[in-house]
Design a protein around this nucleic acid. Structure first.
Lengths: 143, 143
DNA sequence: ACTCTCTTGCAAATGATTTCCATTATCATT
DNA sequence: AATGATAATGGAAATCATTTGCAAGAGAGT
């Protein structure tokens, strides 16, 4: 498994930075690696804590700055779920919506072609073109 | 048109406060009246400015406090659209989603039974019960 | 190694919202 | 209408998430 082709790998993110003429710093490398692992949707503080374990010199500002840059380059996505700080996710291209577990804060991704279609339809009827959308379900596990 | 039966009228909101054992103050009356007019989705500052015209003694804190109380009582809804302060809306019972005009900031309400159904379905498949949801379309007027 | 300038850490600034606290006002009761 | 208990208010300070200013530090091309 060549790490250069590993989907969603760190190298993807590094490549994005490099191509944008940005520098690959020690702290960015660490943050990128954490994001590349994927799996969850950490907020800036969580990211900072995890990164700190690998490199104690990282600051929260840098986490925020890095998130901002990566978001601008389209490399990650920022989600602001209800009543909480922004959470970040490695943008793997495939759009999806979210179901947030109100008890654990866990985020489950899903996608519904039907809903997407309906949204387009609704916007069209109202005379609009959708630029982006956000669909979030907040719920609890069914017992 | 008896104002006591006027749907979505101020008296509704006042009744909610009264029934909750809360006091009807001069400033609350002003804020409630503005919300009752409905029509748009003002944020706290806009609400504060409008209220100030009627009663210069109103403070921003009171606007926020009133919003919090009314939200807890289910009398209004708080929406936090992307990249902006919370905006409030008189809760008239009928659930709806929002389409935000990216150019004007205007909010258009809509409702799709089909989408609601699909959401339920998706949550069920994932083993969840929906407690609440949020669907927002961000778009521009089609020319 | 040298230099240019992008990045960083830290602290201070910001923006939205909440909370503290002493004062005022509402409303049920006289 | 006066009284009194206590909820509500204004204003300032506090909080939370995030951004920014600035001097020092570190990539990367030469």
């Amino acid at each position: 498994m060549a790490e250069t082709t590993e989907p969603g790998g760190t190298s993807d993110l590094e490549a994005i930075l490099r191509e944008a003429g940005l520098r690959i710093t020690r702290q960015r490398r660490v943050i990128l690696a954490i994001l590349a692992e994927g799996g969850d949707h950490p907020d800036a503080l969580a990211l900072f804590r995890r990164a700190s374990r690998q490199d104690a010199t990282i600051s929260l500002s840098t986490v925020y700055r890095t998130m901002k840059v990566l978001e601008e380059k389209g490399a990650i996505q920022r989600h602001t779920f209800e009543g909480g700080p922004a959470r970040f996710e490695h943008a793997d291209g495939r759009h999806h919506d979210h179901l947030i577990d109100l008890d654990s804060g866990a985020v489950i991704e899903f996608r519904s072609e039907k809903i997407e279609k309906l949204q387009e339809e609704i916007a069209r009827e109202l005379g609009y073109e959708i630029v982006s959308h956000r669909l979030e379900l907040y719920g609890r596990r069914r017992k």
